[in-house]
């Protein structure tokens, strides 16, 4: 196990609602206990021995990094578009590797079986070919040209549609989904997942959305996303091994798993192995 790479990324450790309500959050990051306090505008993150870590408010969440020289926090340009509705969906604890949680977020083939009647439905199970690349200039994984038949793609969807998807992985534990916006076809809805690694085998997932939807009540938006993520939770807690295998011989992918294959390769290449199984088959 190595935290060397992981230490220099930024991680969500609380959301804006918690600090706005005056909560002091006792949590963990990469196995170390942390305390999050202060206000949304002046958040304070301290370790067990009282050392203050850098802290910032971005995308309605409080982020920190324990490393000496953190890489930049991923930029999500849509966060600046003020006519979007921003929805932090709360943290959900999952007994799985933080990397397995991200990989599940990048997967579409499970929609008919795990998100039945919402994001997918038999017999519409086929995954058409799509494109995956590592964009070397920004060091991000991108999956594009994805289409899938969805019974209810979003709360704002009134009928089944062929949804377009693009996935972007700007950091090992941060993933962003750009997806057809039913009421505004020229724009993308943005759904991100910020994964807080509590330990190698336990994490908190913080889903966040930036949507164009002026009709749906806010609570419905939150619950739509929570319903979907909690359907994944019971899957994630039953994958074996708990850690994400990086040796390609340990699990057998097929064509539709290209995003997962490239994500694993990218992690291995970077040495981003916190939460990964690195021993050979």
């Amino acid at each position: 196990m190595s935290t060397e790479y992981a230490r220099n990324d930024w991680y969500v450790v609380a959301d804006v609602n918690q600090l706005a309500a005056g909560q002091v959050v006792e949590t963990r990051l990469l196995g170390q206990p942390l305390r999050v306090s202060g206000s949304p505008d002046a958040p304070l993150v301290t370790t067990a021995d009282g050392t203050a870590l850098p802290a910032q408010l971005r995308y309605d969440h409080i982020w920190t990094s324990p490393g000496a020289d953190p890489r930049p926090l991923p930029d999500i340009a849509e966060a600046a578009e003020r006519d979007r509705t921003f929805v932090p969906c709360g943290g959900v604890r999952v007994r799985c590797s933080p990397l397995r949680a991200v990989e599940n977020f990048l997967d579409i083939a499970h929609f008919p079986f795990v998100h039945t009647g919402i994001l997918g439905e038999e017999p519409h199970t086929e995954v058409a070919p799509y494109k995956v690349e590592i964009r070397e200039d920004v060091d991000e994984v991108w999956a594009t040209q994805i289409g899938f038949h969805q019974p209810q793609a979003a709360k704002s969807a009134t009928e089944a549609i062929e949804t377009r998807y693009e996935y972007r992985v700007p950091a090992p534990t941060t993933a962003v989904l750009y997806k057809t916006c039913p009421p505004k076809p020229e724009a993308w809805d943005v759904i991100a997942i910020f994964v807080q690694p509590l330990a190698e085998n336990e994490c908190i997932a913080w889903p966040w959305m930036a949507l164009y939807d002026e009709v749906t009540p806010y609570a419905d938006l939150v619950q739509f996303q929570q319903e979907i993520f909690l359907q994944d939770r019971s899957i994630l807690e039953n994958q074996k091994p708990t850690l994400l295998p990086l040796d390609p011989r340990l699990e057998i992918p097929t064509r539709c798993d290209l995003t997962s294959v490239v994500y694993r390769r990218w992690l291995k290449r970077k040495g981003a192995t916190y939460g990964a199984l690195t021993t050979a088959a």
Binding site: S234, I235, N238, K240, P241, E251, I252, S260
Partner: peptide
């Protein structure tokens, strides 16, 4: 263990 992505087949 499902050979694909390790899901427990008992589910």
């Amino acid at each position: 263990r499902c050979p694909h992505r390790g899901m427990r087949l008992s589910h």
